[in-house]
Design a protein around this nucleic acid. Sequence first.
DNA 1: GCCAACGTTGGC
DNA 2: GCCAACGTTGGC
Length: 153
Amino acid sequence: MPAYWLMKSEPDECSIDDALAAPGQTVPWTGVRNYQARNFMWKQMQPEDGVLFYHSSCAEPGIYGIAQVTGAPYPDPTQFDVSSKYFDTQSKPDAPRWWLVDVRAVRKTIPLLLSTMRSDPQLEGLLVLQKGSRLSITPVSPAHWHYITTTLL
DNA sequence: GCCAACGTTGGC
DNA sequence: GCCAACGTTGGC
């Protein structure tokens, strides 16, 4: 049984277009520095899990594409890179603190804006719609996934 | 730029 | 283990 996720990315850093243009249409999901989000990638994600590609911190936040998890989790290389803004002095190579998965962009979709999702009663309970939700990776129920991908996108 | 909500840190 | 202070996220 595949699981489904919503993953936020700042389009200035990596948009759905950037992901589609990457080699293999695949990008490493670097920079997650929240334990809950890390644990989803490290402990729960499986290859071929479905991903709603969400643009955050931009003019029109919302879902802009569909992607999927590829491969097994591995340590985020940016945590050991002193020149990276994600460098973590506390993390040691023999005990990495931050893990990630690779994400392959499948296709760009019509924008499904946050404002649109908020006004759709069928999406009640979607975690990204919760007040004050800041978590950059959230699980999506199969029912919500199917409704979003087959009816809204 | 503002600020509410949340996560983390560290003193006690 | 509590909780105040602080830093960050992210929509608006």
